[in-house]
Design a protein around this nucleic acid. Structure first.
Ligand SMILES: NC(=O)c1ccc[n+]([C@@H]2O[C@H](COP(=O)([O-])OP(=O)(O)OC[C@H]3O[C@@H](n4cnc5c(N)ncnc54)[C@H](O)[C@@H]3O)[C@@H](O)[C@H]2O)c1
Ligand SMILES: NC(=O)c1ccc[n+]([C@@H]2O[C@H](COP(=O)([O-])OP(=O)(O)OC[C@H]3O[C@@H](n4cnc5c(N)ncnc54)[C@H](O)[C@@H]3O)[C@@H](O)[C@H]2O)c1
Lengths: 213, 213
DNA sequence: GCTTCGTTGTGAGGGAGTTCACAAGGTCTC
DNA sequence: GAGACCTTGTGAACTCCCTCACAACGAAGC
């Protein structure tokens, strides 16, 4: 659209920088240096400066970046000015934890609808979010202009649920089911397979423990 | 140790390949081609072959890889023959979901201890896992030879908890608190910040939706 | 046995993302 | 105002992965 594409890693870090700027800078300060933000984010100063270039913000040598500018610049990249709604599919153990976690966290990005097949859940408000039946998916997503979804259904249902989401116009999916999903071009997919993560950590924990012997 | 280092992405995919081999190959089959595994894992066949090289397994042209060999070869890389125990710190909403999810999933890699500061939780068995107080951390980790931990404590307590884990001998941490952690060299860290993930997905959902207009 | 077909293993090449390194430009001190 | 010092912005180099492409190989048909 706007000519420049931003790497997805950069987008993630911008989200982090914004949170750090909002919460971890001592009050009273109104500028930061790249190396300070880098310290908080555990990345290199050069990385911070590169990332910030994507926002159009610029600092002054010797003075650093104005914090207000940064928060505003990052928000201009990350946020939809009209606000953006997210759907959660699968209101089980993980789904409910996610609902609790994200509720009231950011004004501009909210989980506004959840979906499940369990008749004990549908039609109710769970953790502050209305739970709809899957047959209402198309309607609710369209009415809410929802383009982003979090997937927390059982592995065996993940692909069919994805297909339904995509058919309903979803363009970004955050997947917690431990199954690689197939999505058409133009749909952004982030896989967050906890089993993969845990086995990877366990492997390197074992490996570095051995090396140090 | 063994001379060859394996990329962490490769370790993650090996974990995935093993699960797919165990669960998604029609019974009766006893070999697979790289392109079949690739299809299941949503990666390229060349990627699969590269990854499998790290296990020492080899296939035969025209016949593919023997499934038994692959599972065994991957397990030889990923698993500790004596089994590996994992600790969970922070038995809140997310922690309990994780306990439920991982219970009984893999014989060789189990969450065997959890920790919390809440006296309503400590001393009890929660979701099949005993919950200890933080003062017992050192003892329990040492007795259980635990080198791997999952972190699910509030953001403000994440760094101090990490320091305690590292002091107690932990060498790999899977972090779900939305804070970058500082760990010494030799400790493997996997950050899984859900806010970053969600904001990234939301950004690209918006962006690709615009492009298609 | 020879040809055809399809697959493996891997060197070489490519691409994305990160870091280096330095010129250009503030700031502070005296 | 001149010199010392520190920071930004960024071209270039680098690094890590991934993909390409193809030789080598096994199987199957004739
Ligand atoms: N609990 C965890 O910490 C955890 C960790 C990693 C991965 N996961 C994955 O996340 C997913 C959910 O895990 P969970 O622990 O919440 O499981 P769960 O069984 O508690 O919840 C699953 C929910 O999905 C609903 N559901 C089932 N089929 C559905 C369908 N076709 N459409 C919509 N909803 C449907 C169920 O009614 C239930 O409410 C699973 O794929 C699991 O593998 C969970
Ligand atoms: N719930 C989610 O889906 C979700 C998603 C993303 C990230 N997180 C992060 O995961 C962490 C836990 O989230 P949650 O929703 O389970 O919160 P929670 O408040 O339900 O649970 C936190 C648990 O940690 C315990 N605790 C507090 N201080 C502790 C300490 N110093 N040592 C040990 N235990 C301590 C509390 O007693 C509680 O049981 C938070 O950092 C949160 O930001 C949660």
């Amino acid at each position: 659209m706007n000519g420049v594409t931003i790497a997805s890693r950069t987008i993630g870090r911008l989200s982090l920088y914004r949170r750090l700027l909002e919460s971890s800078i001592p009050g009273g300060r109104d500028t930061v240096f790249s190396h300070e933000l880098a310290g908080l984010a555990c990345v290199t100063p050069a990385q911070v400066r590169r990332d910030l270039m994507a926002t159009g913000c610029s600092g002054s040598p010797g003075k650093g970046y104005r914090i207000r500018d940064l928060i505003e610049g990052i928000s201009k990249v990350l946020d939809d000015p009209e606000g953006q709604s997210v759907a959660l599919v699968g209101v089980g153990n993980l789904g409910r934890a996610i609902l609790t976690y994200f509720s009231g966290r950011r004004r501009n990005l909210r989980i506004t609808a959840s979906f499940d097949v369990d008749p004990l859940k549908t039609g109710r408000v769970i953790n502050g979010c209305r739970c709809y039946s899957m047959s209402e998916l198309g309607d609710v997503l369209e009415r809410g202009r929802i383009k982003t979804a979090i997937l927390a259904v059982p592995a065996g249902k993940a692909q069919e649920t994805t297909d339904a989401l995509v058919a309903a116009g979803v363009r970004g999916i955050l997947n917690y089911a431990p199954v690689p999903l197939r999505v058409p071009d133009g749909v952004f997919l982030e896989e967050r397979d906890m089993t993969m993560s845990l086995e990877t950590v366990a492997f390197f924990a074992r490996k570095t423990a051995l090396e140090r012997k």
